[in-house]
Design a protein around this nucleic acid. Structure first.
Lengths: 365, 365
DNA sequence: TTGTATGCGTTATCAA
DNA sequence: TTGATAACGCATACAA
């Protein structure tokens, strides 16, 4: 019977230069295509069929002579794995202003992803229209990866939740406990802040004031918690005035107020790190305006890293957020989720940073 | 007759939640998978079968409710586009040392990619082993994307050439004329340097010295060419001594030599920008050591941007490499290649940067 | 206008 | 140890 012509795609694009396929390697080596695949992508040691040395040699030789390179698309399709991890930030991943960028995180993310054999897909977030402007399903694009890392403060909860419910591996960089079910990796601000407070107490400080913005982000409340825990551990009282809230430190954190505190016996201040560094900035300028010397009159500590534009000034006492390690930890967690494991290593420790802005309190008359 | 079990792969992993496929969308919408494909990836206006508005609506609704996203690998395999542009750098894209990063380029790359509707795949390149350590197929992974942008100095030529020969769209960021057939986008150092020289001449300088490292990278030789062209355009002589070569400016660029030049009538120096900023650094320290004032005694210009660690010093006269624009131009070119167009816009202009380090030469007795 | 039937290049399974 | 063969998810030629 005549094999009648059947519908379907045209056999060959014909026009373009096409690279050698496993089939051609197989023909040249005198084996089947499947054998070529077995030789060229062996299972992790031991598993799978064993290929005779002679066959292996012939296949490798044929592949080399033909300049065979595997097609990543086909490979990933067949393996049901893209080896792609998404990175989604709600601002541009690469803002023009380097200061606000996630660069330090990305350092770790890239390194760890490479180590684990993943490539990265950068999803251009809500930023500049384009690829996936806004819209409810903007987040849907990330599904093209095997899993996705989310960075940034303002996370659209419903969409994220939807992804998680669908079993899509998601990790949030920065604490997100409140989003139930969303895996996250964050810095241990509680422990780091407590450490700073305890060290101040050990220096002899009895009254310490926390300067923070009026924000209920975990990054902020965690520091407050650590602050209180530190006071308690050091056996210090925690009167209500020890927590200073302000959305506009510049205005509320006046020299007068500072001086009043000093008169009340306050000898140390700790300020949280924020995007803008407003709390720390406000504290610094108020101290200067009040004519107080640091660390002679007051000790100052920054709960985080100083803003980039203060790089020329001496680095204050405080702690460093290990951003690259955080990024790396997030990738590890994400990779575990992708692999179906249930790993969980949320908190990454910060490291205490000694500095010239703290010292023993001045002996009071 | 019993349909006997035939060899092949197990139909479905069954256990894990898997991303929705066109088949599921089709089922939900009550149409065939092919119809879903037609609706979801329509041919450029007019071509192809026309789908009824009603069907289209149902399909889109189903796709949205399932959170459907096309599988990039499958798309590529089926000889179509997946709206992914690759970025491959031969060093880590995000090095720990921010100074050497491609960040400024990426700013433009991301913005333009988003504007054009592409997402970016960061191929974790030669960095730390991992994904594709070395090997010929390390570069091959980029074929997952529709095209790829290459950044960095040390380009493995054979692999790159191979990609180009296979018709894979490739653009190199940074001049790569010598790699025949490789499209590239670069900054116009020749023009920018000439501009600086001419402006110096207009200020009244008659003898100008170029400080550059002994490097034959286009970035370096282009500046030299621009330097010579500038001299010629200004009608100035170009004796051999006007070009200073040194791999170690710190040692060769001595205060004595500088003073000698000054005595010979040299009133201006231009230094190339390099990775390390060695030329500029060497020039600066030699000038200071020689006790020369800038710009009173000598005018200094930097052919590029100052190193990050000199950020606190006044920004010298020179020109700025519009890195974001370069990145954007590269993406535009790449997108054009992907679309099958033959666009070509290799050179991006630099912008002159006035500064306090240049002025009219001191009137000589 | 929509459904059917391939084919893309691999990997994975089972039979030989 | 190797070879058929199916399936991965999508796009497309052709039939209905």
């Amino acid at each position: 019977m005549e094999p009648r012509k059947r519908p379907g795609r045209t056999p060959a694009p014909a026009g373009r230069t096409s690279r050698p396929r496993q089939a051609e390697v197989a023909r040249l080596a005198g084996v089947s295509q499947a054998t070529v695949s077995l030789v060229l992508s062996p299972k992790p040691d031991g598993k799978g069929p064993v290929i005779s040395e002679e066959t292996r040699r012939r296949v490798l030789e044929a592949a080399r002579s033909l300049g065979y390179v595997p097609d990543p698309a086909a490979r990933r399709l067949a393996a049901a794995r893209n080896n792609l991890l998404g990175v989604f930030s709600f601002t541009a991943t690469f803002p023009t202003d380097v200061q606000h960028s996630y660069y330090p995180f990305l350092v770790g993310v890239e390194r760890e992803a490479a180590a684990l054999g993943y490539d990265l897909v950068l999803f251009t977030g809500s930023s500049t229209g384009g690829a996936g402007a806004a819209g409810p399903d903007a987040l849907s694009r990330v599904r093209l990866a095997d899993g996705c890392l989310f960075i940034g403060r303002h996370t659209p909860r419903p969409e994220l939740k939807r992804l998680v419910e669908d079993g899509f591996p998601v990790v949030h960089l920065g604490r997100r406990e409140e989003l139930e079910g969303v895996a996250w990796v964050g810095a241990d601000y509680v422990e780091a802040t407590r450490d700073v407070v305890v060290r101040l107490a050990e220096l002899g400080h009895r009254r310490i004031v926390l300067v923070r913005e009026d924000d209920d982000a975990p990054a902020s409340t965690d520091r407050q918690r650590g602050f209180l825990e530190g006071l308690e551990e050091a056996g210090l009282p925690s009167g209500p005035t020890t927590v200073f809230r302000s959305a506009d430190p510049q205005r509320e954190l006046t020299p007068e107020r500072l001086r009043a505190w000093a008169d009340e016996g306050v000898t140390a201040f700790v300020a949280e790190e924020t995007d803008t560094g407003a709390a720390w900035r406000g504290l610094l300028s108020a101290v200067r305006a009040a004519g107080l010397d640091c660390p002679e009159d007051v000790s100052l500590a920054l709960l985080g890293s100083p803003p980039a534009d203060l790089a020329s000034e001496p680095v204050p006492t405080g702690f460093d957020i290990p951003r690259p390690q955080l990024g790396a930890a997030a990738v590890r967690l994400l990779a575990a989720l992708v692999a179906g494991e249930e790993a969980s290593e949320p908190l990454v420790g910060c490291v205490f940073r000694p500095g010239p802005t703290t010292g023993p309190p001045r002996a009071r008359p």
